[in-house]
Design a protein around this nucleic acid. Structure first.
Lengths: 254, 254
DNA sequence: CGTCTCATTGAGTTCTGTCAATCTAAGTGG
DNA sequence: CCACTTAGATTGACAGAACTCAATGAGACG
């Protein structure tokens, strides 16, 4: 695949994500890229894009790759707050806080568009729909966080594992990074256990159980759903369905 | 206290909350109230303001009272995702999703300003700073959610209890609903245990432990911090410090 | 004084984490 | 091509944490 083609595909990521928000005119996309897409940056797996406590003033939109947002307690316990996928934004809430409350690390090689907070704020004033789009993305993230709280708070280990797998698959599917009923996890079981608040051995047992009960198959890091219905029932998973945002007619043309 | 005085105090709630965001001119506050504050609504304790699955198109700003955002699993397990305090917004992410992902119930009698999503969107187009303020509030909420995920995922029961108490106190203090080092919980231990992912008996034991170790005192539902330093150390609590949002000069006057 | 809700305590059981060993696959260097 | 190394997956034994169930206390209210 040529570089040009790749760029094109990855630019699509953002459009795919936002097109559930509302149709984006070509000029709007151009404006977004002009203001936001000034700089495309790569980072290697393992590299921190944000470090807890850091003062942040950049926003990054993920084009390709996986990251995780996490926090480490003093004695080394680590909790992964969420996984950041293509089409997601890095730098919020960090940029809206005095200092970043969590760290963000690249789990794979990643490519992001990076822009200053100031440029983004300027864009939102110029074209308010983008400020709104940000709220809209933040709202989806909040909904994912809420489910994650339910996972670790009240779902049993096997239920929360099932829920995580379904959530990741659904989110990847939105930006066309997943197959119909399979996807590839780019990380170790330790990551998964840190996301789910479990120990590695116990996570491993739960994975084995899902396999034994014929709900999933795993080869290497590829996860395949064998019994989607049972999985959804087990996890009580409900896909996130974003709403279209009503835009006043007088602004329709922006 | 006269009704007029009460209105005044409660209007202050929103201003207090947003004034950490940036100074609000008098005209901006007027515009906000005009667009958003058209309707003031009361709800009694126990009443649902949002029900899971419902289609939402209203945003509500809490003036006084406590609410909780929660979800119930099929077999009755319940998880409280967060507590909603004066100055917080109800209806997000609900209004940005096809249907509300969680329910919101009033824990005490509450007073909220209610406005249609459409009116709010219109306001954000007219004065983009309010759209941005929404993102800014959402970012703080996300940061609180993240800490809550760490609570239930990796903090021990006593740590997460300490963390919850400190967080609630800090959030109440922002809107002047707390004393220097004490505040009143308006709900039962069952609520707390559902927020923390614990059973009631175990939560009760942890509360007793905090008391025995001289970190807190409780009479009725009033919580007093006796050893703030030890509590913060135990919970590894870091207060949330919102940043001021830079506004382009050409929009300064809005 | 009875009733109700909520807080508190105790006993026993289950779940899940810890620790440690083993297994597997993918490199790596000779 | 093979021995060696290493990261990660898997499994087992065991201890301790937290849950469930059930009983008791305490206070509010009619």
């Amino acid at each position: 695949m040529s570089t040009a083609r790749l760029e094109c595909t990855q630019a699509q990521t953002v459009v795919r994500r936002l097109s559930a928000f509302r149709e984006l005119s070509e000029s709007a996309v151009t404006a977004l890229e002009k203001a936001v897409g000034e700089r495309i940056v790569r980072a290697g797996a393992g590299q921190d894009l944000v470090s807890e406590g850091e003062q942040l003033d950049r926003i990054r939109i993920v084009l390709a790759g996986w990251l995780s947002r996490y926090k480490t307690l003093e004695d080394g316990r680590r909790q992964i707050v969420n996984f950041v996928l293509p089409g997601d934004v890095v730098g919020l809430p960090g940029s809206f806080l005095d200092r970043a409350a969590a760290s963000v690390v690249a789990l794979t090689d990643v490519r992001v568009r990076s822009c200053s907070l100031e440029a983004f704020v300027r864009l939102s004033f110029h074209l308010p729909k983008f400020g709104l789009a940000l709220s809209w993305l933040a709202a989806q993230e909040a909904a994912n966080y809420a489910e994650h709280i339910i996972d670790v708070g009240r779902r049993t280990p096997i239920e929360r594992l099932a829920h995580l797998l379904l959530e990741l698959h659904a989110r990847l599917a939105v930006v066309k990074f997943a197959e119909e009923s399979a996807f590839t996890l780019p990380f170790t079981q330790e990551m998964m256990s840190d996301a789910l608040g479990l120990s590695v051995p116990h996570l491993n047992r739960m994975l084995a159980k899902l396999r034994n009960e014929g709900m999933i198959a795993m080869s290497e890091r590829r996860v395949e759903f064998l019994d989607l219905k049972a999985l959804r029932q087990l996890a009580q998973f409900q896909p996130l369905r974003p709403a279209r945002i009503p835009v006043p007619e007088e602004y329709e043309l922006d």
